[in-house]
Each structure stands twice: as structure tokens, then as C-alpha cells.
């Protein structure tokens, strides 16, 4: 991580949750600002120039999805949302509104830090030039030559499979909703055809994962979408 401490704003109405999130992030070397309301959070986001916003969806003063939309009109700061496990619809709406990732309550410090690091890494890499070759597991993807190798053997992907892999790689660490992926890879008229996406993800796993039934890189976020993890 860079010499300057990354700045994180935690917008959450429950004091005890803010407390442990703050403690964990500070130990990780971040500067943490706490906000108990959406209004305060938005003001902080404007003045503190954060690298990451951690946002609870159930705020008392405003709908969390609204806050994301608002934030996205003037900032591309990374956003991780906190939401209850069973509320898939809320997660999807938040992600489609522009959030990058979510943590389901209750979550441990380990998960929180892993997600935070992934987001900050994305952020610090954003300015750099894109590496022509991406490695994950025993797979190497050469983006300039559009070739994929596994165990140094060439893997043949179809045009759609390659495009899907490309979108996943470009958003490494982020959760991409079914809707988002269908729109990016197949086009807006395929938004309702989620079975296409699932079949093609299955193909990619068959070709690139060690055990397609227990994938390590192309991960399922059940009911929400997919996440690529290097």
C-alpha cells in the first residue's frame, strides 16, 4: 500500500459496529472517519476525499440505495455495503446503483479486511497501465494477444467465453450482478436470460478451474451474481 494512509468513511448508525470496524481498519493502517447518518456521511465523503466508503443499507435518515446513487453522481470512490444475509434484492439494487461489493451481516474482521484490501488494491492500480498478462491459479491470460494458457497448454475459448472472462478480469474483486454481466457480454436484450450467463460461467470453470464444482477464482454470489478473485 502507498505511504499515505488510505482514508475510509464508515457510514453506519450502530455505534458498536462502527467501533470494531474502525479498530480493525486502523490496525490495518487506514484513517477512519465515522458517520452515524447518511447526511453526515455524504458531507464527509465530499470533504475527506476518501478512498473507500463502507455504507450500511439500513440507515435511519435515508435509503442506502439513494445514498449510493447520490455519491455516484460526483465520485467513483469504492463502496462496500453492509446488508442482512437474506436481503438479496437490496444487494442487487445497491450493486446496480454503483456499489462495488457487499458484506453480509454478521461479518468477521477477516472478511472485512480482505474486502477492504481488495478494494484499495483496485483503487491504487486504477491509474497504472493495465498489465498485458493476468495470472491466476495455473492460468495465464494474455490480453494483448487474446490467448489463454493453463499449465502452459493453450485453452480454446469461444468469443463469448473470452468476452465474459475479460469483463470478470477487468472487475477483479468486485461483485458483478447477473444483470450487469448479461448487459456487458450479451447486450441489453439478454438481461432476462440469466441461464445463458450461468451456462457460460460453467464452461469457463470447466476450462479454467481445477475443480469446477468447487471453484477458487470465478466465485458465485448466490442470488446476486459473480465475483472474480485472483
Amino acid at each position: 500500500m502507498a505511504e499515505i494512509a488510505p482514508r475510509v468513511i464508515v457510514i453506519e448508525d450502530e455505534v458498536q459496529i462502527r467501533r470494531f470496524v474502525r479498530q480493525a481498519l486502523e490496525e490495518e493502517g487506514c484513517r477512519v472517519f465515522e458517520a452515524g447518518t447518511a447526511a453526515q456521511g455524504l458531507i464527509d465523503a465530499g470533504t475527506r476525499k476518501p478512498d473507500l466508503v463502507i455504507l450500511d443499507l439500513g440507515l435511519p435518515d435515508r435509503d442506502g440505495i439513494d445514498v449510493i446513487r447520490d455519491l455516484r453522481t460526483w465520485s467513483d470512490v469504492a463502496i462496500i455495503i453492509l446488508s442482512a444475509r437474506s436481503h438479496e434484492d437490496d444487494k442487487i439494487r445497491a450493486l446496480d446503483a454503483g456499489a462495488d461489493d457487499y458484506l453480509a451481516k454478521p461479518f468477521g474482521v477477516g472478511e472485512l479486511l480482505a474486502r477492504t484490501r481488495a478494494m484499495l488494491r483496485r483503487k491504487s492500480r486504477a491509474g497504472d497501465e493495465v498489465a498485458p498478462t493476468v495470472h491466476f491459479g495455473d492460468v495465464a491470460v494474455d490480453l494483448s494477444r487474446r490467448t489463454v494458457h493453463r499449465h502452459d497448454e493453450p485453452v480454446h475459448l469461444t468469443a463469448l467465453e473470452y468476452r465474459l472472462l475479460g469483463v470478470l478480469l477487468a472487475n477483479s474483486g468486485r461483485v458483478l450482478t447477473h444483470r450487469h454481466l448479461l448487459k456487458e457480454v450479451w447486450g441489453p436484450s439478454f438481461i432476462e436470460s440469466s441461464h445463458y450467463l450461468r451456462v457460460y460461467v460453467g464452461h469457463l470453470r470447466q476450462k479454467l478451474e481445477g475443480d469446477p464444482a468447487q471453484p477458487r477464482h470465478i466465485l458465485t454470489e448466490t442470488g446476486v451474481g459473480y465475483r472474480f478473485q485472483p
Binding site: 450502530e14 461479518f107 468477521g108 474482521v109 472485512l112
Partner: peptide, 9 residues
């Protein structure tokens, strides 16, 4: 959530 997080921290 607070309990899990605080104990973990």
C-alpha cells in the same frame, strides 16, 4: 453483528 465483530477484533 456488533458481538461477532467486537469479539473478532
Amino acid at each position: 453483528t456488533a458481538l461477532v465483530g467486537l469479539a473478532d477484533a
